[in-house]
Design a protein around this nucleic acid. Sequence first.
DNA 1: AGCATGCGGTGCATCGTTGCACCAGTCCGC
DNA 2: GCGGACTGGTGCAACGATGCACCGCATGCT
Lengths: 349, 349
Amino acid sequence: MGEVTIQQVATEAGVSPSTVSNLLNGRNHRMLPETRQRIETAIDKLGYRPNRAARQLRTGRTSTIGLVVPSVGNPFWGALARHIESAALAEGYHVLLCNSERDPRRERDYIDELWADGVHGVVLCSSLPSLEHVMPLVERGLQLVAFDRTSQAGDPASLVSISVDNAVGSQLATQHLTDLGHRRLAYVSGALASVNRKERYRGFVAGLEQAGLDPAEALRAPTGSGADDFGDVEASELGRAAAAELVALDEPPTAIVAINDMCALGVCRGLRDGGLEVGKDVSVVGFDDIVLADLYAPTLTTVRQPMREMAAAAFSQLRSRLDDPGPSQGQSLLFRPELIVRESTAPPP
Amino acid sequence: MGEVTIQQVATEAGVSPSTVSNLLNGRNHRMLPETRQRIETAIDKLGYRPNRAARQLRTGRTSTIGLVVPSVGNPFWGALARHIESAALAEGYHVLLCNSERDPRRERDYIDELWADGVHGVVLCSSLPSLEHVMPLVERGLQLVAFDRTSQAGDPASLVSISVDNAVGSQLATQHLTDLGHRRLAYVSGALASVNRKERYRGFVAGLEQAGLDPAEALRAPTGSGADDFGDVEASELGRAAAAELVALDEPPTAIVAINDMCALGVCRGLRDGGLEVGKDVSVVGFDDIVLADLYAPTLTTVRQPMREMAAAAFSQLRSRLDDPGPSQGQSLLFRPELIVRESTAPPP
DNA sequence: AGCATGCGGTGCATCGTTGCACCAGTCCGC
DNA sequence: GCGGACTGGTGCAACGATGCACCGCATGCT
């Protein structure tokens, strides 16, 4: 049980613990190469690893960051988590995983707890439009990188926002459909509860206008209890239900833009249930380009987010702010979306 | 910055830090209700939260567990991570996420590091048949719960194994196909590098034999460089390539059993590429029942693992062993798989 | 000789919590 | 009225790493 301590290393190397500590922390400018060698040998021999708790207690710093996502069960967030974790690992950081399940209260509790644990940097994939609930901690020094959420008025000044340009992406998707000749489009999303969802819808509207169509005539589904928010796992359920509603119309749309890929897959499923063939009778576009978009039958036309780059940026932003003590200026990084055309879109029948 | 310490709480409540600590740790058998009240008031007023690092340094205990999975980018592991994290949260535990990317070295390094961080309990979803690389730590007291891996000779005595009965599951799937009348079956997997994969294949063979078929005549794909291991994200690629190989045969199989759902989806994709219709020309069965199995077109017949229950069991096993100091006896928990019949299977044409 | 400067380290207090050892006071029995 | 037990706490020394202040020595400069 007895783990090796810095004291034992020091004894072994015939120096004081301070000297070992100095070496460990790069304060070895004026250290005899021989001394350094002795210490390194001792470390290897004893298999010494610094005790993180002690180090954190003393310095107040951690090399653990928090990652708050709605749910890693969702392939999109799973992919993000994977990339963030990889980026963190490369720099010796660890990732504490938090699934908010889109519960604002849970999200808030998590962040409180992370802070209490000494975690000073969090990548937050919040479903909430306002970040007010975490302001107190941000004022105390919590570094926050918001992912998939463009910055808003009222956000903390130090906030970093990482996001794809949702409006442009949606517009790209919509334009693709109008270019194919579609004139009767529908938009499927849950409540536009988060910032990025609003943005995407805005892009949809812009795309319609650009094609000379009247946004007011476009359909939005579900039309029934459209105000309900929805969780990630249920995104596909929602898509499916929405599609059922749409096919039941007298004049169903010939093309559907979905808020994200999971939702789009649900839509495809619903259309199939209704006897329609996706990519022939109806076109469907998603958003995200999750791995399954290219596996699905038909393969899904979608808007790709450069996840790896975005994840790397999220981590490196966080890291640099964690290293630099001073109060830092926030910024927004908007990544460029890319339309990936696959089989689920075609000219209207 | 200055966080509230137990000392401040003590001063505020007019007691000694020890007394506050006693209350916090449930040693309040003989404490005046009034004192207790004063302390609780002080805690609330100051917003005190115990410093984890200090606590861990002092006690040697953490309420963080490690979760090592191949990659949370894979929906199956993502779902597991979500459930484990939920179970942990409910008991006040945190989850440190580690993606091994199926790299044995990375897996090993991770576990070493977790140990050095004071994490004494890990849920390990290892791709490795042998656990030898972690034996030294297990001997030092590391508690290990192996997920999706039935126990093996040579495993640490204290190891807990949580797994679905892979052989039975596979046999169920195979039997379903032979019951439908299929006589020419193929099995698609990567290398049978891990224990559970071997088990699944064994179930497949058993299923064939039970139907009076000769396992030797069943196909295994890919036939080319079949010995290659594969990562999770590439499981679908492998399925797709394997399907391409199979359709090119003079006498293609009428039914395919895939090692898991991601692989099965790849197979479906490959079959489609080859002009075959899944659920009509060819039947396909997967394993896991990931969320997408029910979204796919056609919906995928598969073998369900009771993930939520398995995740809960994994955490509670770990927890109880973490709480109880003494050396504990290992055990294996085998969960019952369930065949979920959907559209991707049908009688042979 | 007298003082400054550089070199290669070391001493020590400290981070916040814990829990064993201990203590002063009261009450009981004989 | 004295030993013993109980009550409701407190004192103090850790846990392991850190980093500032400091030290003895050698050398250089005037």
